[in-house]
Computed example of a mutant assay.
Amino acid sequence: MRFKGIYTPVITPFHEDGSIDWDAYAEIIDNQIKHGIEGIIIGGTTGEVYALTVEERIEQLKFAKDRIKGQAEFMAGVNDLSAATIYTMAQAARDIGADSMLVGAPPYSIPTEAELANHVLRVDKIANLPIMLYNYPGRMGVMMGEEFLSRVAQSSNICGIKESSGDINRLHMFVRHFPQIELCTGADDQVLEFMAWGATSWVSAAGNIFPKECRRLVEVCSVEGNFDKGRRLMKAFLPLMHTLEQGGKFIQCVKYGAQLQGLPSGAGPRPPLLPLKKELKREMDEIIRNVRISVNAILEEKE
Rank of each mutant, 00 (worst) to 15 (best):
L116A: 04
L116S: 03
L116Q: 04
A117D: 04
A117S: 03
A117Y: 02
A117N: 03
N118R: 15
N118Q: 14
V120G: 09
V120M: 08
L121Q: 08
V123S: 12
V123I: 12
D124A: 06
D124R: 07
K125Y: 09
K125S: 15
K125R: 15
A127P: 13
I131W: 06
M132Q: 10
M132C: 12
L133A: 07
Y134Q: 04
N135T: 00
Y136V: 08
P137W: 01
G138H: 03
R139Q: 09
M140I: 04
M140T: 12
M144F: 09
M144Q: 08
M144D: 04
G145A: 13
G145L: 12
G145F: 11
E147K: 15
E147W: 12
E147Q: 15
F148Y: 13
L149K: 13
S150D: 12
S150K: 13
R151S: 13
Q154F: 03
S155H: 06
S155L: 03
N157K: 00
N157S: 01
I158Q: 05
C159M: 11
C159T: 13
G160M: 07
G160D: 04
G160R: 03
K162H: 05
S164H: 10
S165C: 09
S165F: 06
S165V: 06
S165M: 09
G166I: 05
G166Q: 01
D167C: 04
D167R: 08
I168T: 11
N169G: 11
N169C: 10
L171N: 02
H172L: 15
M173Q: 13
V175M: 08
V175F: 05
H177W: 10
F178L: 11
P179E: 07
P179M: 01
Q180W: 00
Q180S: 05
I181D: 08
E182R: 01
E182G: 03
L183V: 03
C184A: 14
T185A: 14
G186R: 00
G186L: 01
G186H: 00
A187F: 10
D188V: 10
D188G: 15
D188R: 14
F194W: 05
F194M: 09
M195A: 10
M195Y: 04
M195C: 06
A196N: 09
W197Q: 13
W197R: 12
G198T: 02
A199G: 07
A199H: 05
T200F: 07
T200N: 12
S201V: 00
